[in-house]
């Protein structure tokens, strides 16, 4: 068994094996998790967590599923944070500066404290992507925010009350729909299918007896 460490879950002391993640430490301590647990692999942002290590003055943030416990770690989870999520019609919005002004005007109150960036569980440059959003540079905002798991820790630390993950979400959709170039091969193929140009081939292959299909499969050419 690994060496044991002391952790403080919501301030209460537990002794747990030192090779557990924070999430596993909760379960080891006896918790049955419903909140604050999701994919358990760093993708869904359900397990936002803040902690301090005794003697270290800095407040740190992480995902509980992908962070190991440390001795004298004092932990609180943030399973939900009330973000502002404005509704919009993706067909009607356009990638101009006005849309951010209209939906998320608080981004212009950013005081540049950089607390969001320091708190990001994904080590993203959050303040910088907000700066891009302010200027209507959605492609850059999308690129810098791409790895965001929307855990919301950034917003919990923001003195201006910005909902960074939702701002970035809007920027990415604007970029994906309006700014990134159209894929002509895709448009063409969809039209071909709609026009029935692929129907004959699919019906022909469906009509083949299994043995013939197997032959085709076992000898098909594989693109290099």
């Amino acid at each position: 068994m690994a060496n044991m460490v002391n952790v403080f879950l919501y301030g209460k002391k537990y002794e747990v094996p030192g090779d557990l993640t924070i999430m596993e430490a909760f379960e080891y301590a006896g918790y049955k998790l419903v909140r604050g647990v999701g994919c358990r692999n760093g993708f869904c942002g359900a397990c936002a967590t803040v902690y301090r290590i005794k003697g270290d003055r800095e407040l740190k943030a992480c995902l509980a599923c992908s962070t190991k416990v440390e001795d004298n770690m004092s932990v609180a989870t943030l399973p939900f944070f009330p973000l502002i999520k404005e509704g919009y019609d993706i067909e009607k919005v356009r990638p101009n500066e006005q849309i951010m002004m209209q939906l998320y005007p608080e981004i212009y109150s950013c005081v540049g404290c950089n607390a969001c960036t320091k708190a990001c569980s994904q080590s993203l440059n959050v303040m910088q992507y907000i700066a891009h959003a302010q200027r209507g540079e959605y492609e850059k905002c999308a690129e810098l925010s791409f790895d965001c798991v929307m855990c919301g820790i950034c917003s919990s630390r923001c003195p201006a009350g910005i909902s960074h993950p939702q701002v970035a979400m809007l920027a990415r959709r604007l970029n994906g729909k309006y700014i990134a170039p159209e894929s002509l091969h895709l448009t063409t193929r969809v039209k071909e299918i709609e026009d029935g140009l692929c129907t004959e081939a699919i019906e022909a292959i469906m009509a083949k007896p299994i043995e013939e299909l197997k032959e085709l499969y076992n000898h098909r050419d594989i693109e290099k």
């Binding site: 791409f146 990415r172 959709r173 970029n175 994906g176 990134a180």
Partner: peptide, 18 residues
Amino acid sequence: KWLNELGVEFDKDEDGTM
């Protein structure tokens, strides 16, 4: 196409080829 038009950011070359 449906996803792309909802704003999903697929990896593309500069000319739009996925």
